[in-house]
Design a protein around this nucleic acid. Sequence first.
DNA 1: CGTATCTTTGATACGAATCAACTATCGTGG
DNA 2: CCACGATAGTTGATTCGTATCAAAGATACG
Lengths: 248, 248
Amino acid sequence: MRAHGTDGGVAQAVFRRFNALRPLSDEDTAALEHAILEGLLRAGPGEDLITEGDRIDSVRLVLSGWLFRHKTLEDGRRQIVNFILPGETCDSHAYLLSTIDHSITAATPVAYADIKRVRFEQLMAANRTLAEAFMCETLLSSAIQREWVINLGRRAAFERVAHLFCEIFERLRPVGMVDGNSCALPVTQMDLADATGLSVVHLNRTIQELRASGLIVLKDRTLTISDLEALKNAAMYSPNYLQLYRAK
Amino acid sequence: MRAHGTDGGVAQAVFRRFNALRPLSDEDTAALEHAILEGLLRAGPGEDLITEGDRIDSVRLVLSGWLFRHKTLEDGRRQIVNFILPGETCDSHAYLLSTIDHSITAATPVAYADIKRVRFEQLMAANRTLAEAFMCETLLSSAIQREWVINLGRRAAFERVAHLFCEIFERLRPVGMVDGNSCALPVTQMDLADATGLSVVHLNRTIQELRASGLIVLKDRTLTISDLEALKNAAMYSPNYLQLYRAK
DNA sequence: CGTATCTTTGATACGAATCAACTATCGTGG
DNA sequence: CCACGATAGTTGATTCGTATCAAAGATACG
């Protein structure tokens, strides 16, 4: 059961991303596609894919839509610790842990593939390139997490939001989700506030500052970055943490 | 070449930690010990084990001493993104990535084992339990990283420092590095400030607040937690992110 | 014993949170 | 199709937490 033609079908973003991590042979691609097509699922905005405390027994690949990982304190303070974008993987290998320490919620309508643990382990055992690519996914998400730590710990609000926008843009680009200098930003300002550790009010003012500086246009859930280099400078953005694949 | 007796020898902390992740058979233990003893090395305080931008080709296990991972912005602002404590692993699998996005520096004299990539891959291929344990190490360090994101993003200074102290204590406990309700804290207040995203001055005042609340004693690089439950409450600490191993 | 590093204290400034409205947008049902 | 409530975005006023600046003690160190 092949997907339509050469565009990669429903899993195009996944293939693009994997190829950026490790070049896939036709055989690799076919094996991955097969596993994906066995477990296609959908979720609606606000729906939890994983809830803190769950045990999990599968790996999920996001075909389309945005999700976020988040943790909440007893008194309700919430922090989004990462976004999960098309082509990215939720918690590969995480079935090895007893329980999950955070929740994953769909921000938009989401299509994803659910690959059961046993199936996933077969795939990894049979195909070394895919195993390495999945491992890189895990390592990359750690690298992003580290960058978020310095973002929250050492960048001021203006830089922080600028940095988040640079990162999202650079993560969406390799999966073909940017159009010129624009990309979708299908989350509310409250979500952005919870991702940047700011209050909604201050986030709103910071975005207005970014607009006033002529760095971005944000309207109708679409982010346009007028001058990416200028935005990166403002954010002290250094992209090396995202481009971590080892050229063969 | 066995280590001395039943105490695990120089690598005692490593074995304790691995056993907490995955119970090791005698055979597992022997294989791991063998690999460790082949590559014993030392580093002094301030010495870099890994510098941002390096390519790496080995995995390191910390036998004794503290290190920290850190990232620095162009203008010198520094963020410690994690501590690496005895028994823990630096970047297992990270040789898959092209370059490393952060530096690792010794905070104290450190003894560690350097296992070359090829050797490490042999070990993983030959021993599934060890492979899973190393994978868990990677996943756990991600979980800690996520917790640090919420710590920096949503906890106030007092809670934040309290949380860090709870976490360090709970990470040192399973490797036998706590003594009653005390543990070593062999880092400067500047390091703690860079780990919590605070200024040194404010960190100092926060520690004094914690002392005044009777929650901790911190003197001569020794942290004593008078009432761990009270400290956890103050920090809104929930330990589940550290206890992630799946009972067999 | 003198110097560098680390810790502590005080005074002041500023960035971001909070509180309270108000406006705009979106979805939905009458 | 419009009215309505709910959700999202925006604005102003004020408070508070934390940074910054400056300097004094304390401690470690060669």
